[in-house]
């Protein structure tokens, strides 16, 4: 394997804040890198995953003004794990509110997994504010994608982890596992909620890497993380991403075809399998399409880091 690009060094934010985006919700945001640099917004996954300091490191800090924010209800945003007024279109509006708050005219939008969903939704609504798109582990929140991961598909490859995911739900309710999990994740009983949240999150963490990561699986099972992650994800999934139609993101791809873009996909991504990236690529051939042959879903897979850093590096020279 040829030399691979790795993360930029660790870096601290030069600015952090809380932005009030509704009478209920306040979102955490931070800026790092070069304050006069090319703006980029990092859109995290889940939904409900929150940001991590490591995510600053996909971008050259000498060149980029790096904006991270925690979407409603997760990470350091408050109220924690709240599902009230929490939809795709609220998040798109929050990104606009944050962009205006920071006085940024156009920014690069970078997101993987659910971050790719939200990035595409944002760009299709506000193409004039999107300078480039860097997308990874494409997820368009269609029924077949949810079925693959939560009902039947990934289960064939990870029968051992799947057994634990199934065990949390009585046999009679297994015909619609997302609905069965949703019932528990929105239960009034905190113990029921937490047990379901852990099983839901651990299933995803167990299947996200080519080589399983015990550290990542342990983190996914932590109470606070699992609760926000599972509740918010499941809420979005039972509501089908709050899209007007099933394939809304593909349908509206014409709106973003002129935006320079890179799509990065792990061949062995079983969380968001390559079929979706392939369909996006066929609908949007102008976007560069990088298949990483030895990677699963996670943004931290070595081959994925290499491709993502390569993509942001390649866009460094483009005007903000």
């Amino acid at each position: 394997m040829a030399h691979r690009r790795t993360f930029y060094p660790e870096i601290e934010p030069y600015d952090v804040g809380q932005l009030r985006v509704s009478s209920l919700h306040t979102i955490y945001y931070e800026q790092s890198g070069n304050p006069k640099g090319k703006p980029v917004v990092f859109v995290h996954g889940g939904p409900g995953g929150g940001t991590d300091p490591k995510q600053r490191r996909f971008f050259d800090p000498a060149v980029y003004r790096i904006v991270l924010f925690d979407q409603r209800g997760c990470g350091k945003s408050t109220p924690h794990a709240s599902l009230v007024d929490n939809t795709t279109w609220h998040l798109v509006a929050d990104m606009e509110a944050l962009r205006e708050h920071l006085g940024i005219a156009k920014w690069q939008v970078f997101g993987g997994s659910w971050g790719s969903t939200l990035a595409i939704a944002y760009a299709e609504k506000h193409p004039e504010h999107t300078s480039e798109l860097v997308l990874r582990g494409i997820f368009m929140l269609r029924k077949k994608e949810l079925d693959w991961f939560y009902q039947e598909g990934a289960s064939a490859i990870f029968p051992d982890a799947w057994e634990k995911y199934l065990a949390a739900i009585p046999e009679a309710e297994r015909g619609d596992l997302v609905a069965a999990y949703h019932k528990r994740l929105t239960s009034d009983d905190p113990a029921v909620q937490l047990a379901a949240a852990k099983a839901w999150s651990v299933w995803e963490a167990s299947t996200s890497f080519l080589y399983p990561s015990a550290e990542f699986i342990a983190h996914a099972g932590e109470d606070a993380f699992a609760t926000a992650f599972a509740r918010i994800e499941c809420h979005y999934f039972v509501n089908r991403g709050f899209f007007e139609v099933e394939d809304q993101l593909l349908r509206d791809v014409a709106r973003i075809r002129k935006i320079p873009a890179t799509i990065v996909q792990g061949r062995y991504d079983v969380v968001c399998p390559m079929m979706s990236a392939w369909e996006l690529h066929r609908a949007w051939p102008e976007a560069q399409f990088d298949i990483v042959p030895d990677a699963g879903h996670s943004a931290y897979e070595p081959g994925i880091v290499h491709a993502l850093v390569g993509a942001t590096d390649a866009f460094r020279g483009r005007a903000p």
Binding site: W148, G153, A156, R267, Y268, V270, M274, M275, W278, E279
Partner: peptide, 21 residues
Amino acid sequence: EDEMEWFYGAGTQTLFPDAWH
């Protein structure tokens, strides 16, 4: 049945849409 369906139906092609094409 689900083994045949996996390889010549909905399974493998989800991960290898290019080869399936």
